[in-house]
C-alpha cells in the first residue's frame, strides 16, 4: 500500500446522504477479477445525468470527495474503494461513514476524514464559491485546509499510523504467527472443519 501523508486536490461536493455502495458502484460492475479499471462503474447511474457533479468540467480531476452523512452504507464490496481510487480520489470527507467501507478504505490507502456536519456544509460552501478549487488534507496534523477554512478531522490513531507508514496488515500479523499457532492448539476439539 502507498503511504498517505498529505494530499492537495480538487474538492468535489456530493450533496447526498446515505450514499450506499450500490450507488458508488452497481453490482453489474463487480465482475472483474483485478483491482483496477473500476472507475467506469463509479456512480454509474448518477453519471448518466449530465448535471451530476462529476460531469461538470470544473470538477474534472477531482480527488477529494465531500459527501453527506452515512457514506458507504450497504454491501461489503471493496470495489467501492477501488472504484473511487481508480477514478482518482485519494480522500473522502463526511460526517459519518459505514464501518465496512471505512475499514476497506484504510486497507487501500483511501483516507476517510470525519468532520462535523457543519464542517461539511462549510466545505460545500467553499466549493460553491470557487468551483474546482483545491483543498489540502494533511494526515500528519489531521487538518483540512480550504481557502481560509482550517478544519480538524478525526481518524483513529491506528489507521493513521498504518496510512502514514503505508503498512500491509497481513505482513504485520504474520509477525505474530507463533501466537496464532498457540491459539489454534487451545481451540476446543468440537469446533467444525469443512473437510
Amino acid at each position: 500500500m502507498d503511504s498517505f501523508t498529505t494530499h492537495t486536490g480538487i474538492a468535489v461536493p456530493l450533496r447526498r446522504s446515505n450514499v450506499d455502495t450500490d450507488q458508488i458502484i452497481p453490482a453489474v460492475y463487480l465482475k472483474r477479477v483485478t483491482r483496477d479499471g473500476f472507475e467506469d462503474g463509479l456512480f454509474a447511474a448518477w453519471r448518466q445525468d449530465p448535471d451530476f457533479v462529476l460531469n461538470q468540467p470544473q470538477y474534472a480531476g477531482g480527488s477529494v470527495l465531500v459527501a453527506g452523512p452515512d457514506f458507504g452504507t450497504g454491501s461489503s464490496r471493496e470495489h467501492a474503494v477501488w472504484a473511487l481510487m481508480n477514478y482518482g480520489f485519494r480522500a473522502v470527507i463526511s460526517s459519518r461513514f459505514a464501518d465496512i467501507f471505512r475499514g476497506n478504505s484504510g486497507k487501500q490507502g483511501l483516507l476517510t476524514a470525519v468532520v462535523s456536519e457543519a464542517d461539511v456544509e462549510s466545505i460545500w460552501a467553499f466549493c460553491d464559491e470557487i468551483p474546482g478549487a483545491a483543498l489540502t488534507v494533511d494526515l500528519e496534523s489531521r487538518l483540512i485546509t480550504a481557502g481560509d477554512l482550517s478544519i480538524p478531522f478525526e481518524v483513529d490513531d491506528y489507521t493513521r499510523w498504518r496510512l502514514l507508514e503505508g503498512l500491509d496488515d497481513v505482513g504485520l500479523t504474520l509477525r505474530h504467527e507463533q501466537l496464532v499457532a498457540e491459539f489454534e492448539a487451545r481451540r476446543p476439539a468440537y469446533k467444525p472443519v469443512v473437510q
Partner: peptide, 20 residues
C-alpha cells in the same frame, strides 16, 4: 460479520483479523 477483500486476503493468509 462481513469483510472487504483485503480482509478476505488477511483471513486466508492468517486465519485472523485485527479488529477494533
Amino acid at each position: 460479520f462481513g469483510i472487504g477483500t483485503s480482509e478476505v486476503e488477511h483471513v486466508l493468509a492468517t486465519q485472523t483479523l485485527p479488529l477494533k
